[in-house]
Design a protein around this nucleic acid. Sequence first.
DNA 1: AATTTAATTCGATATTTATCGAACTATATT
DNA 2: AATATAGTTCGATAAATATCGAATTAAATT
Lengths: 110, 110
Amino acid sequence: MTNINQQKQPLRDDINLAKVLQALSDPIRLEMVLKLANESEIQCGCFDLDLPKSSLSHHFKVLRESGIVTTRREGKELFNSLRIEDLEARFPGVLSSVINSARKADIGKK
Amino acid sequence: MTNINQQKQPLRDDINLAKVLQALSDPIRLEMVLKLANESEIQCGCFDLDLPKSSLSHHFKVLRESGIVTTRREGKELFNSLRIEDLEARFPGVLSSVINSARKADIGKK
DNA sequence: AATTTAATTCGATATTTATCGAACTATATT
DNA sequence: AATATAGTTCGATAAATATCGAATTAAATT
């Protein structure tokens, strides 16, 4: 399991609540997180958001550095998934309630 | 019950998830919310945070406009409280889990 | 080893947000 | 009606964040 940029992903105990919330506070990233929650693991390029690659990459970086997402390389492709266990252990209920709320609500709106 | 700036406080159904998370993503505001959670209602000036009044006021404004806090005037003083019912109804678990996590964790750190 | 594919990093610009002193507003008190 | 008190609003500046094209890296394929 070759994890890319592992040094940039905080260890569980270093995940910071304010930073997690900051990462989740962007409508695009919220949509990304929602998609990851629905599909468990997604290749970077498979987000059919109307965004250039560099922007998408920026948002993944924020998600990664805040501790929300981990990235795994497989050949040329990178696969992202939520760090659900780590987040639930560190901040119980935060991610799951946000995801549940995002599911039924106004994601995408500004 | 004279509520100040009521027009600036969103109605329950207009509370926006991304904006709530954005409001909660600042360490100072997280600390304010935590204090409000512990004491139910607080006068603006009673936050012994090392901040000028205008900064404190700014943070209250963000909390108010995002729908997290409501403000009530009593004489010269303004009292703030969390809109727990509205938030729990609209985004179940979000505020409460954030408060619980903030209680035990690293609030104040950057 | 050149090319293709997938995604990151860089760099420049624009937008948003934070900070905080000074001026202002609203209420109560003298 | 002047003063005091509590808090907001204004305005200017600084810091953080978003956007996105161009250059770069890393792995696979030819």
